[in-house]
C-alpha cells in the first residue's frame, strides 16, 4: 500500500493532487493519512479531493493536544503509527507543511527520505529509484533509495496521469500516543495566508534587480505593475541591499511564481532567480546587456536602460488609454445614468 500524507483544507488538498497521481503509478492501493489535523473545517474538502483522485480511505491520526501540535509532534505521531501499518511508501507534496511533517517522521523512524522528487519508480528488492530536483530544479539528481518504507516528497513539477475518481472517501480515526519531547513546543496561534493580489498569485509580475539602481527606482515599476494589474517583485540583490522587503523576492529562497507575464528589469538571470520565474508563460527581459542569461532565456527582450525603457512604456500605455477615453467616457456615463450610482 502507498500512503499519501496530506494536510486538511481546500488548498492543501489541491496541492496533494499531483502527489496522489504519482502514488497511483506505484502499483497497489493508495490511501491517505493526516496527522493532527487543525480541526474539522477542511475535512469535507479534503475528502472530496481525495475521492476525485481515486483515494477511498483517509486515516486521521489524533491525540490529546493535537490542536497545538507542531509539525515535529505530528511527524512523531506518524512515525509511531507507521510501525504498525507498514505501508511500502509514504508520499507528501514537497511544498507546505506535510513535507515538514514527513521529514520529522523520517527522523524519528530513522528512515531515509528523498525530497523534491519528480519521478518515483517502485522498488525492486527494496531499492527505489527516484529523480530529485536540486537547487530549485536547475539540476536533476537520479538517486537510489534503500529502505523498508520509502519516504518521498513529490515536487509540483512531477507529472503522472490523472487517476480515476471513486464514489467516496471514508474516514478511519486512530488515536495515537502524543510525543513528550515534541510537545515542549506548542502552536499558540495560526493565521491563514493573506488573500488578494499577492506576488505568488498575481497574473503579472514586474520585477527589478541591481539594474534598477536603488529603492527610488522601483517607483516606475510600481506604476507599471499598477497599470497591468500586477505585483512588484525583485531579485536577491535588491533584498540584500535593503531596497525591497524579502516578501518581494522571486527565486529559490524567495517566492516561486508562475504568472502570465513576468517583466524582469535589470536582472541578470542567475539560476537561483531563474527557478523562481521559469514557469511564467511569457517573460520580457529589459537589460542593457544582450548577453545576460535572462535575455537569452526570455520570450521577449528590450535592450536598454530600465530608466529610459520603463517610463516610455508607462507613457505609451497612458497615451493609448487616453486615445480610447472618449468612447469609454460615453459608455461609463450611460451606466451612471441608468444605475444612478457611481463606482468610486
Amino acid at each position: 500500500m502507498t500512503l499519501v500524507l496530506v494536510d486538511e483544507g481546500v488548498d492543501a488538498a489541491a496541492d496533494a493532487e499531483a502527489t496522489v497521481a504519482v502514488a497511483h503509478t506505484l502499483g497497489g492501493p493508495v490511501e491517505a493519512v493526516t496527522a493532527g489535523a487543525a480541526g474539522e473545517s477542511g475535512l469535507s474538502d479534503t475528502l472530496a479531493t481525495l475521492a476525485a483522485t481515486g483515494v477511498a480511505r483517509l486515516h486521521r491520526l489524533s491525540w490529546p493536544g493535537a490542536a497545538e501540535a507542531t509539525p515535529q509532534a505530528r511527524g512523531a505521531a506518524l512515525a509511531r503509527w507507521l510501525t504498525t501499518e507498514r505501508p511500502s511508501a509514504v508520499l507528501a507534496p514537497a511544498e507546505g507543511r506535510a513535507a515538514e511533517v514527513l521529514a520529522h517522521a523520517a527522523a524519528r523512524a530513522r528512515l531515509p527520505l528523498a525530497a523534491q522528487c519528480v519521478t518515483v519508480d517502485a522498488a525492486v528488492d527494496g531499492e527505489w529509484t527516484v529523480t530529485r530536483e536540486r537547487a530549485g530544479g536547475v539540476l536533476l539528481e537520479d538517486a537510489r533509495l534503500t529502505a523498508p518504507v520509502a519516504l518521498v516528497t513529490v515536487s509540483r513539477a512531477a507529472q503522472a496521469p490523472a487517476p480515476a475518481a471513486v464514489d467516496r472517501c471514508e474516514v478511519v480515526e486512530h488515536v495515537v500516543e502524543p510525543d513528550p519531547v515534541a510537545a515542549r513546543a506548542r502552536v499558540v496561534g495560526r493565521t491563514a495566508a493573506a488573500g488578494g493580489v499577492t506576488l505568488a498569485t498575481a497574473p503579472v509580475v514586474v520585477s527589478g534587480g541591481r539594474g534598477v539602481g536603488g529603492p527610488e527606482g522601483y517607483g516606475v515599476l510600481e506604476e507599471l505593475a499598477g497599470l497591468l494589474g500586477g505585483a512588484v517583485g525583485c531579485s536577491r540583490v535588491a533584498t540584500n541591499n535593503g531596497w525591497r522587503p524579502h516578501s518581494d523576492q522571486v527565486g529559490l529562497t524567495g517566492t516561486r511564481i508562475a504568472p502570465e507575464l513576468y517583466v524582469a528589469c535589470g536582472i541578470s538571470g542567475a539560476t537561483q532567480h531563474w527557478v523562481g520565474c521559469m514557469d511564467s508563460r511569457v517573460i520580457l527581459a529589459i537589460n542593457t546587456d544582450a548577453e545576460a542569461p535572462m535575455v537569452a532565456r526570455a520570450t521577449y527582450a528590450v535592450l536598454g536602460d530600465v530608466h529610459e525603457v520603463l517610463p516610455a512604456v508607462v507613457e505609451e500605455i497612458r497615451r493609448r488609454r487616453e486615445a480610447r477615453v472618449p468612447g469609454q467616457d460615453r459608455a461609463e456615463a450611460g451606466v451612471e445614468l441608468r444605475s444612478g450610482t457611481r463606482v468610486p
Binding site: L284, Y300, A301, E315, E316
Partner: peptide, 19 residues
Amino acid sequence: GPVVLGHGADAAGPVVDVF
C-alpha cells in the same frame, strides 16, 4: 532565444503591443 522588441525608449510601442 528571445524576440528582441527594440532598443531603449523606442521599444515602448512594440512592448505595449505585446501587452
